[in-house]
Computed example of a mutant assay.
Amino acid sequence: MPLSAEQLDEFADAVISLAHRIDPRGRELPGVRRLTSGEIMVLHEIATDPGSTATTVARRIGLQRSNVSATLHRLESEELVRRVPARTGDRGIGFELTPIAHGELDQVRRHRSQRLQTAPADILQAAVAHAHTLSRLARAVSALPTS
């Protein structure tokens, strides 16, 4: 049975609300630069798949390649990513995280974890049980062509 637009809107609102509540943007985290949510998404994609190109990252997170390229240039100038050969099957330049970026992403993850742990355990356990499905949904949505 297809979901209604209202059901999908409610779901999207819940996901966005959760993301905003755990997002460290605008907060001072010890040892972490003020990263934008876009920079965090790019760093996460590079951490997940080192050697990814700007084109691959853009496709996965649903942003314009030019925006991802500009973000990668900024992250490279801040010594958070470095250029490496593209992973097998890709053309162009790939990127990987530097040790500095790994440390900063660890701090962001700790912050997010601490924020989530403020929820009641039963709600958190029920939501975490669906983490894999939500990750698959995120990949499926970002794979769609943008208008």
Rank of each mutant, 00 (worst) to 15 (best):
Ala138Phe: 05
Arg83Met: 12
Pro145Glu: 09
Gln64Asp: 14
Glu76Asp: 10
Arg87Phe: 06
Ala127Trp: 04
Glu10Val: 10
Gly94Tyr: 12
Ala129His: 02
Arg59Leu: 11
Gly103Phe: 02
Arg91Met: 10
Ala129Phe: 00
Glu76Tyr: 09
Met41Asp: 15
Phe95Glu: 07
Ala140Ser: 07
Arg60Met: 00
Leu144Glu: 11
Asp49Gln: 14
Val128Leu: 14
Ile22Lys: 07
Gly89Glu: 08
Ala138Ile: 05
Arg65Lys: 10
Ala47Tyr: 09
Asp23Arg: 07
Val42Met: 05
Ala86Phe: 04
Ser4Ala: 06
Glu28Pro: 08
Ala86Pro: 03
Val81Asn: 06
Arg34Asn: 08
Met41Ile: 07
Ser52Trp: 00
Thr53Val: 03
Leu137Asn: 01
Leu124Ser: 00
Thr98Ala: 01
Leu63His: 15
Thr71Val: 06
Arg109Lys: 11
Ala58Phe: 03
Ile46Asp: 09
Thr118Leu: 11
Val84Cys: 05
Phe11Met: 09
Ala5Pro: 08
Met41Ser: 15
Ala121Cys: 05
Glu39Ala: 03
Thr118Pro: 00
Arg110Met: 10
Ser17Ala: 15
Pro30Asn: 04
Leu144His: 05
Arg33Glu: 13
Arg59Glu: 12
His130Trp: 06
Gly92His: 04
Ser142Met: 01
Ala5Met: 13
